[in-house]
């Protein structure tokens, strides 16, 4: 589904990613862990198409196509979803308008009929239940006045509406209390099937108690320095990142 080959990325002249290789297959959950500043969010953002990131080398193939050649909206329409670490507040853009436009842009790109307002609201209600989204939030502007937890929940709610093939969750667990964490994880698990895949980017192991990964990768200094099964996450939780840093010559 996703194949990253020797990816180098610069932000404002600073080299952040220094040769990433990663293959994600349908049905898999990959966790990308690592200390702060190791390049985790950069990887998430570059996959979503953020423009400040310059790819200096390497290639990314998504569903057999060159991902880096696509505009952010095209990537999204083809099923790539980024759950933002810091979802943006957009005053004046009503949630319902935003969600309906997003869903219909996806449908249009697949050659499906756009949903009417009535159809959309019905569809939205079923998804709201799934992630325990309150109606009062959908009556506001996008993320406006949402608490940290509500913003993260809103990301998973959008994910439920857009039904992505590849979801990238960027620090979705940060700022969440344990109940919110469970709700979010429940939403992610409910959306899983054999045809889609998830990349969980996280600093801590605790989200992985609820979203169990098939593969765990440690990103350090812009490279994946270790890959293993889910047991690696426990090891990191226990020993911290210092041993990784030592192993890599710090």
């Amino acid at each position: 589904m996703l194949s990253i080959k020797d990816l180098f990325v610069e932000v404002e002249g600073m080299e952040i990613l220094k040769g990433i290789n990663l293959v994600v297959k349908p049905g898999e959950i990959h966790a990308i862990m690592g200390p702060n500043g190791s390049g985790k969010s950069t990887l998430a953002n570059v996959l979503a198409g953020k423009e400040e990131y310059t790819v200096t080398h390497g290639e990314v193939t998504y569903l057999g196509e060159d991902l880096l050649d696509m505009a952010p909206e095209e990537r999204a329409q083809k099923g790539l979803f980024l759950s933002f670490q810091y979802p943006v507040e957009i005053p004046g853009v009503p949630m319902v308008n935003f969600l309906k436009t997003a869903v219909n842009e996806h449908r249009r790109s697949r050659g499906e009929k756009e949903l009417t307002a009535g159809e959309f609201l019905k569809f939205m209600r079923t998804k709201m239940e799934m992630v325990d989204m309150h109606a009062q939030l959908t009556n506001r502007s996008v993320n406006e006045g949402f608490s940290g937890g509500e913003k993260k929940k809103n990301e998973i709610f959008q994910m439920a509406l857009l039904e992505p093939r590849l979801a990238i969750l960027d620090e979705t667990d940060s700022g969440l209390d344990i109940d919110a964490l469970k709700t979010v994880a429940h939403g992610v698990n409910a959306l899983r099937n054999s045809g889609n895949a998830t990349i969980v980017v996280t600093h801590y192991q605790r989200l992985l108690d609820y979203i169990v990964p098939d593969h765990v990768h440690v990103l350090y200094g812009g490279k994946i320095v270790k890959s293993a099964g889910k047991e690696l996450a426990f090891e990191l939780e226990e020993k911290g990142y210092d041993w990784i840093k030592k192993e890599n010559g710090e």
Partner: peptide, 25 residues
């Protein structure tokens, strides 16, 4: 706001439409 624009585009809304949404807002 470029951050907001990217957020809308990352949800599949094309750039022109996203800009329009922002201006209307």
């Amino acid at each position: 706001d470029e951050e907001a624009l990217f957020y809308l585009r990352a949800r599949g809304i094309d750039e022109a439409k996203a800009r329009l949404m922002m201006m209307n807002a």
